[in-house]
Design a protein around this nucleic acid. Structure first.
Length: 268
DNA sequence: AGGTCGACCTGGCAGC
DNA sequence: TGCTGCCAGGTCGACC
């Protein structure tokens, strides 16, 4: 799915487009993605005003006038598109009283939509680690967490109980900029490397947000437009291409069932 | 008990 | 053309 930068881009688009608008009608085209009984889902939404649009990790929370939340997890291929034209991947349409609508598109239907009184009803929110930009994601926290495990650092970066919002693309990119080999056991990350790892986590995610995310295949922003961070990606999906720093061909390996890309010369 | 591995789905693409 | 197999940004539960 979209990782943190992509979900944050969608959040900002939805905030701009939906804040203080009132849901008039919810049209369900494929109920697979609605993870609760449809009648209670639509009943909880109808007539509700959107009072806040927030993000936690890779999940969107739209607060309603009732105090409840519409939680949207777009997973791998979900999209929230303002005023888009429905297509074969459209699973639901939210119509607004003031005019306009939002499509929920999701090719693979892994996405999850539900209305809850409190996000903590959903396990994801209960186990989620700190946001990468939060104070809690500190050098001391990172050092203490990495010391506890021998798992490869790449797997740890992608573990959302360690830090929220980092997925397969940005884990590879952050490690490239930090010059750390993705297979290095987390407990072997040196104390002196941690400030740089944290700094690159911040700069990569921040820059990706500025570029409105990366579009490999399916990701689109709230206007249905691709992100442009692809042009800034150094290693992800660049197997065989020359490393931007040393010209060594980028390698692809598989870790925890996911592709990892790195430069074996630059990253130790 | 931490960590890995299918399952959940659809569709695009490479290779034959 | 059409088949097969592989691959895809995430998350969870079963299992070792």
């Amino acid at each position: 799915m979209p990782e943190l930068p992509e979900v944050e881009t969608i959040r900002r688009d939805l905030e701009r487009g939906l804040l203080r608008k009132t849901l008039e009608r919810v049209e369900i085209i494929d109920s697979t993605v609605i993870r609760q009984p449809i009648p209670s889902f639509t009943r909880a939404l109808r007539g509700q005003t959107i009072t806040a649009v927030d993000r936690r990790g890779k999940a969107l929370t739209l607060q309603l006038g009732s105090g409840a939340y519409l939680v949207v997890q777009v997973m791998m291929t979900g999209q929230m598109v303002l005023n888009g034209a429905p297509d074969a991947s459209t699973r639901g349409i939210f119509h607004f009283k003031e005019g306009g609508h939002v499509l929920y598109n999701d090719q693979r239907k892994f996405g999850q939509l539900r209305v809850v009184k409190d996000p903590s009803e959903i396990k994801y929110f209960r186990i989620l680690g700190p946001e990468p930009f939060a104070e809690a994601f500190s050098p001391a926290y990172i050092a203490a967490s990495l010391k506890k495990t021998t798992r490869p650092i790449k797997n740890v970066l992608m573990d959302h109980t360690f830090v929220a919002g980092i997925g397969n693309i940005y884990a590879s990119e952050i490690l490239f900029h930090s010059r750390i080999n993705p297979e290095r056991p987390a407990h072997r990350i040196k104390q002196v490397e941690i400030p740089a790892l944290l700094a690159h986590t911040h700069t990569i995610l921040q820059e990706a947000i500025e570029y409105r995310g990366s579009s490999m295949r399916n990701y689109r922003d709230g206007a249905g437009v691709k992100g442009t961070f692809n042009t800034r990606i150094k290693v992800y999906a660049r197997e065989g291409e020359a490393c931007a720093v040393c010209q060594t061909p980028i390698r692809r390996i598989v870790q925890a069932g996911r592709s990892t890309f790195y430069c074996r010369r630059c990253q130790r």
